[in-house]
Amino acid sequence: MEGFTALYIFMLAAFTGYEVISRVPVILHTPLMSGSNFVHGVVLVGAMVVLGHADADSPLQLAIGFVAVFLGAANAAGGYVVTERMLAMFNKSGNTKKGGAQ
């Protein structure tokens, strides 16, 4: 990728991230932090690509690649589960006015 093209992508993505979040109500800050934590779990894809091109005869490379994929998968899966659990509770409490007690 050419340097300046990448720089433009960086710039536009940064503004997008700022804009997308700027109108979020405080009550959603925690699920949102968790949700954005899930989104960077896409690092899994990058980890898969590097492990896929690692030298199969080098234990060091395989080990680092394995760690990268393992951590990336945990980031994505954990981020998803935790975010989904939090947001599921919001839906429940929004719909049933008298849920909860007894």
Partner: peptide
């Protein structure tokens, strides 16, 4: 580019948060 976009979007929004 997908990693760039996802990563930087989170970087920017996380900084704002």
């Amino acid at each position: 580019p997908a990693l760039i976009v996802a990563g930087i979007v989170v970087g920017a929004s996380g900084t704002l948060l």
